Amino acid sequence: MDHLLEFFDDPHDFLAAAEPLLAAEPVRCTVVASVTARFARGDDTRPDGAPAPWWVVVRDQDGQPVGAAMRTAPLPPHPPYLLAMPDGAARLLARTLHDRGESVAVVNGYVPTIDVFAAETIRLSGGTASETERTSLYEVTDLVEPPTVAGRLRIAREDEVDLVQGWFDAFGPDASEQAGRVDPHPQIETRESTRARILAGDVWLWDDEDGVPVAVTAYNPPSFGVARVGPVYTPQEHRGRGYAAAGVAAITRRLLDEGARVCLFADEQNPTSTGVYRRLGYRPLAVTGGVQIGSGG
């Protein structure tokens, strides 16, 4: 089947074009929907020199959207993010980016779409592919409350941006280590985007009984009725006390009570985090991840 790729450089235009797809599968489309919503609100906090963002809708022969992708990551290597789409569309997208002169060193999104995209990119440019991680998208419908933990959850303050940024920066490397991997993991937020999330009220800290911050739980506000929890991080010296479970449960309950569907991503090779989320009632829906595309030179 032939497919058409419709590119956009305006988030509002993309959201209008992709709405049938995003509304039909709001949980599976959570990353694209929530990130694009940030841009639509004017929250473009990418550093100077970052490439211009783009979005693409994949249409079938009848003009219906059957997939989507975006390239909005603020920091190198600026990986595109691909929703599930037909294999032929994934190969077409790889060829189109190759023809546009866009180098792709890492691609993130849904399996097997990212594997098909990576294979076509390598066919065109050479190189090798290696899996960076495999994660699962989880959703909760019936929250299971964890054991009571000393302390309390509170909203992060603007003067705590450096603390939160440090924990966000440590999240990726620590998660990889817990999963038994040693691989590069780019920053998930810039300082500017972290500050914006704090000011929006989307970052919360767990204080222990002495009022010391010991863990962070952030979330992305609802898009198409779906909120996404993350990142969740506890520094090593504070682990094993239930802070992460308490923070995730409190944020999840708040979002569910507000009428949102709630989801999150977890590394399937990290038994610590997946165990926490499963005990809270989160259940896996789909497999996602990342593929690193090595140079063919």
Rank of each mutant, 00 (worst) to 15 (best):
A244M: 11
E189C: 09
A50F: 07
L97K: 02
T194R: 07
A68M: 07
G242E: 03
T30R: 12
G225L: 08
W55V: 05
I188P: 03
W54A: 04
I198P: 01
R278H: 11
A156Q: 00
E131V: 15
R261N: 04
G296V: 04
G275C: 03
A245N: 07
N220I: 00
L15T: 06
I188E: 13
L5D: 08
A286D: 10
V27F: 02
Q165H: 14
E158T: 15
L285E: 04
S125N: 13
G289L: 09
P235K: 12
A17Y: 01
P76G: 10
E209S: 12
G67S: 07
Q292M: 10
G294V: 04
A227R: 10
G109L: 09
D87K: 09
G290C: 08
V276I: 15
E25A: 14
T148K: 06
G166W: 00
T135L: 11
A266Y: 04
F7W: 14
D13H: 11
E131Q: 10
A52D: 15
T121Q: 00
I293V: 09
P221L: 08
A156D: 02
V232I: 14
R253V: 08
V35D: 12
N108R: 10
A286E: 15
E6C: 12
L163E: 08
A68W: 07
R41G: 09
L163K: 06
T132I: 02
A50N: 08
Q178W: 11
G289M: 09
T45V: 11
V232G: 13
L22F: 07
V111C: 08
D115L: 04
